[in-house]
């Protein structure tokens, strides 16, 4: 056991008689990992909703992420590596954010009673954030692990089969709602937490930023739900050919 740790745990000071810089680093890392994940989701949901433009569009994007532009036919390993990187950041973020959760009956009871009595919007938003964050521990892990271990099963038919025939749609519906709410509230709180876009009138800009984020939530929920319905429709139509992969017209699809 490090003597530095023993001294700090007993005195609250490091050996050079200063407060530890670790809380600052943890606070920064919580925000940084959250920002990376939120930005990832912002683009991920746009990409996955390419199915709304047709199977060809979704297939073209899948091939792009499989690196078709520099490896002929692409390789799902790139998806796997990306999922692994995101999963690592996801776990780090969950670990850091958990520090803020109510950790006992007394804390939870005091917080919830206070929040319900006060009915303050940002305080209520935090409850949405911790609830959705808690759900994401499980839902996000299922999705990321699936993408990490079965990256070849992405495509207009493969994804639709997974969603419809493999009965993953309830999980994806809950994941969609949780991740959009969590990311939206998270981005809003990052903005106020670090004073981004405060400008000359921080109060007015906070109201404006909140409105923009609410509109973004509606937009992302709409494209997310319509995409999910589209995947389910394709999966329903394709259930008798479960496992068959999508082929571009007049082109042989890569081996899966």
């Amino acid at each position: 056991m490090s003597q530095n740790n023993i001294i700090e745990s007993l005195t609250g000071k490091t050996t050079n008689k200063h407060k530890s810089r670790i809380p600052a680093k943890l606070d920064f890392l919580q925000s940084a990992t959250g920002l990376i994940l939120a930005l990832f989701i912002v683009f991920h949901l746009i990409f996955e909703s390419s199915i709304l433009l047709g199977k060809e569009s979704m297939y073209a994007l899948t091939m792009m992420f499989e690196g078709e532009f520099f490896i002929e036919g692409g390789s799902p390993i790139f998806i796997s590596v990306l999922a692994m990187v995101i999963f690592t950041i996801f776990i780090a973020h969950a670990f850091l954010a958990m520090r803020k959760f109510p950790s006992s009956y007394k804390e939870y009871m005091r917080y919830r009673t206070h929040a319900k009595l006060m009915n303050h919007e940002d305080t209520n938003l935090w409850f949405i954030q911790i609830s959705s964050g808690f759900m994401l521990f499980f839902l996000g892990s299922i999705h990321l692990y699936t993408m990490m271990t079965q990256p070849q099963n992405i495509g207009p038919f493969a994804s639709s089969d997974r969603i419809y025939s493999d009965l993953m749609w309830p999980m994806y519906l809950m994941l969609l709602v949780s991740v959009i709410l969590h990311a939206a509230v998270g981005i809003y709180r990052l903005i106020v937490k670090w004073g981004w876009f405060d400008g000359k009138d921080a109060k007015a800009n906070r109201i404006r930023n909140k409105k923009i984020i609410k509109l973004a939530v509606i937009f992302y929920l709409a494209i997310g739900i319509f995409s999910l319905l589209t995947y389910m429709k394709i999966g329903y139509d394709h259930q008798d050919n479960y496992g068959e992969r999508y082929h571009l017209p007049n082109k042989v699809e890569h081996a899966n």
């Binding site: 407060k19 810089r21 809380p23 600052a24 803020k100 305080t123 937490k193």
Partner: peptide, 18 residues
Amino acid sequence: YELIGDDDGIFGCMSLLA
């Protein structure tokens, strides 16, 4: 930092802005 550089100080604030 010696006064507020911990989770009981600035890093405990969750920016809920009540």
